[in-house]
Design a protein around this nucleic acid. Sequence first.
DNA 1: CGTTCTTTTGACCGATTGGTCAAATCGGAA
DNA 2: TTCCGATTTGACCAATCGGTCAAAAGAACG
Lengths: 211, 211
Amino acid sequence: MVEKSASLQEGDAAPQTRIQRAKRRQILEAGLTVFSEAGFRGATLDRIAGEAGLSKPNLLYYYPSKEAIYEALLRDLLATWLHPLQAIDPKGEPVEEILAYVERKLQMSRDFPRESRLFANEIVQGAPRIMPALEGELRDLVDTLAKVIKGWIAAGRLAPVDPHHLLFSVWSLTQHYADFDVQVRAVLNEDDPFPGAEIHLDTLFRRLLTP
Amino acid sequence: MVEKSASLQEGDAAPQTRIQRAKRRQILEAGLTVFSEAGFRGATLDRIAGEAGLSKPNLLYYYPSKEAIYEALLRDLLATWLHPLQAIDPKGEPVEEILAYVERKLQMSRDFPRESRLFANEIVQGAPRIMPALEGELRDLVDTLAKVIKGWIAAGRLAPVDPHHLLFSVWSLTQHYADFDVQVRAVLNEDDPFPGAEIHLDTLFRRLLTP
DNA sequence: CGTTCTTTTGACCGATTGGTCAAATCGGAA
DNA sequence: TTCCGATTTGACCAATCGGTCAAAAGAACG
């Protein structure tokens, strides 16, 4: 147990005790709550520290700055957020593959609304810190999938649609229920919008995509 | 030239000279730019003042506080924002009425992206200042239109869809192109996403709604 | 017990922010 | 011109913010 902490950033191995890992998780959990509610600039270290049950200097002992917490969150969550997209199977039945993707995304809006709002805040304000990932990882993933969709359409197994705009539609329709939750609930009569949303989106995409 | 204007605002009479009105418009214009980029908390009076070409105390001579500017903006823009909805004609041809509404909303995303982002910022962060309007004006408008749509469906002139979720779909799909503009452009190959978006959304809603 | 490393904290700092105020300046009517 | 209200501004203030630091408090181990 000599080299306790060499370089604790990404890239290198980051040897951490179980306590350190637990505290960092606490901090990221608190950061997720606060950043998703208030955006980067609206969040304060005091609130994050309070939410995590730590003092402000103690929080800064584990993460060197507010930015470090925010960027750690963005980095960690991007993979999770993109996962449903990667799970689409090019060998599957096209319409059902996309409908399943829509349902997975909708489930994420229901189960992880903070994550959705974190990205929404970031992107609405110009994506100042996640732009590289958008133009890199995301774009590559999207381009790959666009080709798959084009193949499906060429084979007559999917109604002709612009693949990119199809993906935008999936994102906006599903994430709307997390990001604009308060508006949805203010306008809707029911308490839980998701049962209705699931049926609606299934219908919508089925009609759009069935050849 | 005493009583220039009687009561153009809500509440009390607010007599204003032409100069006052012009400066206030400058300030609201600058405020729209800054608030839509940074959200309420991210915006600073200095930036708004700079954008408006005024000193900070001078700005505060026309509006008593940062909140006052922000709320004036929200209040003034809500009507504009809701206008395309009110323009739906219950006596019209159902599918075409809704398609026209979609196109109007998409045009607004293209022509007034700042306004769209202003609301997006507000709502993503819990709509702390516009909630009453959501539960009042907006909800009433939506409920009225929901009945019209239900009537259309009952008459077999529109495919059966949940009216509320239909409206959510219109909002999310159209506003996405304004609010998540940077993401759309980062992923897309074209420069201007709107021509493609218009075709796509027309197809999408036509297939969804045609009985 | 003492020693050494890790963790926690109170006190503090400089920068920024929203907002105030008194004084200066402007602009038009007489 | 003079006068008077409307407008503009530099100087300033209190609160808040992100972040530092030295010292205290634990923990681990012999």
